[in-house]
Structure formats: C-alpha cells, structure tokens
C-alpha cells in the first residue's frame, strides 16, 4: 500500500515537472517563431505599438554578472565563516552563530528587499550614489539572503568528515593547514553542492531584484548602475500582460531561459558532486 502510494506520488511529481517545462516551452513558441534571434537583441520594448522589441540580451547578461559577482562573495565569506566555526569557535559561540543563521534563513526574501529599499538605499544616497536602487544594493541583499545557506551547509559537510581521516592526517605528521586541506577535500562534494545551490538561488531570486536592483535595462558598468535582471522583468510584467499576445509569449521565453538555466545547473551539480565523491573516496 505504502509502496503504491509513494510511487504514485513520485510519478505525479515527475509528470508535473514535465508538464511545467512543456507548458512554458509551448507558450514561448510563438515568440521564438516570430521574433527569432531578435530575442537576443539588447532592447526590451514590449508594449510599444510601433516596432515592439523583445530582446533579452541585456537582462540575461545583467542576471549573469549579478549572480557570478554575488556568488563569489557568498562562497568566500561563507566558507571562511564555516571554517572559523569548525576550527576555532567555542561550543557556545558555534551554537549562537548557527542559531542566528537558522533564523536568518527563515526570513522571507521580501523582508530583505524592504531592508534594501529603506535602509541600504538611504545609505547609498548618503554615500553619494546617484540612485538608491542599484547593482551593489541588490548584490548585498542577495548576499545576506544566501550567506546562511552557504555557511550552514558548508559547516555541516566539514563537521561530517569522519574523525579517522583527521586522525590519520595528524598521525602522518600533517600541520594544521594541511589537516584543514584534507578535511576540505573530504567535504568537497557537500561544499560544491552548497556553492551551486547558492548560484541557483541568486539566479532565480525575483522579489529582491524586483525591489532593489533598479529596474533600468542598461548593461551594468559600475556598481551604482541600476539593472534589471531577467526574473525582475518576468515578475513585473507577467501579471498584467494580455494572455496569448507576443509580449506574453516573450515573457514565457524569459521563463524558459531561467528554468533551463536552473535545470542545467541542477544536473551539473549532480554530475560534479558524484565525480567529486568518487575522487574523494579514491
């Protein structure tokens, strides 16, 4: 009975995922057919009656730049914090920090967005930025959003390294730094999993970029430039677009891009993690 129930559930979930991909693809077909390579031109003017333009290039590039830049920071800081917690922090310290991270990761992204708009935005203006909503603002808020995720996952995978590995390294006369490297190597699959998870989360995040990224469709040239990533456009326009129009279809093309980006990344994560596991276990 239980087997039947679970297998039905599994099939349903798989079918739903497939249906979503199929639905998004079929809705975006019209734009792909009618606009073609124009979909990768830089300008996005969806509602102009004369010569509408449906180019996603600027948005796509901005999305990628924002995601890569933010991810790198989250990776570095998250790894550093996790190493500190594992290696140097006292038990009490560990507990407090982990508890705080847990709470922060439970905060909805819209709250962080509000923080970016009301507090960070103000600080930016005071510091002389020309606009309150900009690339750096979005990047900082996204860092706050994903840092707890990165830190706690990394910390857990380092903690999970069996003690005989560490003991073995010490027995062979390894210095502290080398013991750490051994631990890191053993924890690598978990850490890489966390890193790609962070990348995925930032790439797909909508609410925060909608609120604090600035909403201007220019390619980012400085930290204080307002930008408009793919997800922001999708989130902003899908609610009011006339169903079945070319604009609607072009928005679904954006959805298709975001979705395929995330799916590819997920598959990649799986492959890389499996490889790493094999490498770690020798």
């Amino acid at each position: 009975m239980f087997v039947l129930f679970t297998s039905v559930a599994a099939v349903l979930v798989a079918a739903a995922l497939f249906a979503i991909v199929f639905f998004i693809f079929s809705e975006s077909l019209r734009a792909i057919r009618e606009v073609g390579w124009g979909l990768f031109s830089p300008n996005w003017y969806p509602v102009w009656e004369l010569e509408p333009e449906f180019g996603v290039r600027t948005m796509l590039l901005n999305s990628l730049i924002l995601t890569v830049w933010t991810s790198v920071w989250v990776w570095i800081v998250g790894l550093a914090v996790a190493l500190y917690l594992h290696k140097y922090a006292r038990d009490r310290e560990k507990q407090v920090v982990l508890r705080i991270l847990e709470y922060v990761s439970g905060v909805p992204s819209v709250v962080f967005g509000l923080f970016g708009v009301l507090i960070l935005g103000d600080l930016f203006l005071r510091a002389g930025a020309w606009t309150a909503q900009n690339f750096l603002n979005a990047s900082i808020v996204l860092t706050i959003l994903t840092l707890p995720f990165m830190t706690s996952l990394t910390f857990q995978s380092i903690e999970k390294v069996p003690s005989h590995i560490v003991d073995g390294a010490v027995a062979l006369g390894a210095k502290d730094i080398h013991v750490l490297l051994v631990e890191l190597k053993y924890a690598a699959p978990g850490i890489v999993n966390a890193m790609l998870g962070v990348f995925n989360r930032i790439f797909g995040e909508t609410m925060i970029v909608l609120m604090v990224a600035g909403g201007a469709n220019v390619l980012v040239r400085s930290f204080f430039d307002p930008i408009r990533p793919l997800t922001a456009t999708l989130g902003s326009e899908i609610g009011e677009v006339a169903v079945g129009s070319l604009h609607y279809s072009a928005l679904f093309f954006i959805a298709l891009l975001v979705l395929s980006g995330c799916l590819i990344l997920n598959v990649l994560t799986n492959v890389i993690c499996r490889r790493l596991e094999r490498w770690v276990k020798g």
Partner: peptide
C-alpha cells in the same frame, strides 16, 4: 512605473507620443 500599469500607458501616449523610453529609466512596481 512598470509597463504593466495604466499610468505608464498614459505617459507614453501624452508625453512620449509613442517614442521609446531610454533604457536608463528605472521601472518601479
């Protein structure tokens, strides 16, 4: 305002006379 709003439509019609917005304009929700 974002392109989904009626306010935006009025603006494009009455001020821009159908011309395209500069990409530097920041869209708010």
């Amino acid at each position: 305002r974002n392109t989904a709003s009626g306010t935006f439509e009025t603006w494009v019609e009455k001020v821009l006379h159908g011309a395209k917005l500069s990409p530097r304009v920041q869209m708010l929700e």
